[in-house]
Amino acid sequence: MSAEKACALVKELHRNQGTLPPYNNDLVNEVTKEITQLIQENRNDAQESERSRGSDLLEGVSYISTIRVRHAAIQRNLRCLLAYHYNRVRSLRTMRWEFGSILPADIKANLSTAETNWFSKYSSILAKYMRSVGEDGGVNLAVDLHPPKALYIEVQCLVDYGRYELSDGSVLLLKKNSRHFLPRVECEELIRQGVFQHIVI
């Protein structure tokens, strides 16, 4: 049926929200092929109707409705193509904010050439804007994404880690099950490593 492939294209993107599936070159080509074909069929019908004009008016009318339906299918195909490509660009945009100007390799591999170009362009437009904010060489807008919370957090040590030096030079002895009250920035790495567990009150 008409425009089914185009719809599949959009659905594919919809299913993969939050990630970016590989650019579906094959399906895009098939959709454009379908459009070309529909346009050709409409041209043929239009010529046919032109030829039959004068001989029989009613004959001409019957072409109009098929032409209209095909036209609607062409429009729908185009619209899906636009939606597919535009939404991919938007999701690339989000990734620029998430990962910075260098994309992880697995995502990079999924872009079309045009998308790769767009990404680096957007990246530099955005960087240029950030540098221009304020009078002191710019503001990085990709940080401070959430309201700041307490600087200190309470953590529980999950393993016998031993001595740990804080950035101010003081040394802590981290024993299993010991509890500590530390600046959040000092803990983040150890929380990631599984040494600390953040105690949420």
């Binding site: 070309t36 185009l78 636009l82 170009n117």
Partner: peptide, 13 residues
């Protein structure tokens, strides 16, 4: 630029 490049391959628009 991105879309104009794409549109070269799409008929009917």
């Amino acid at each position: 630029q991105h879309f104009e490049e794409l549109l070269r391959f799409w008929p009917g628009l």
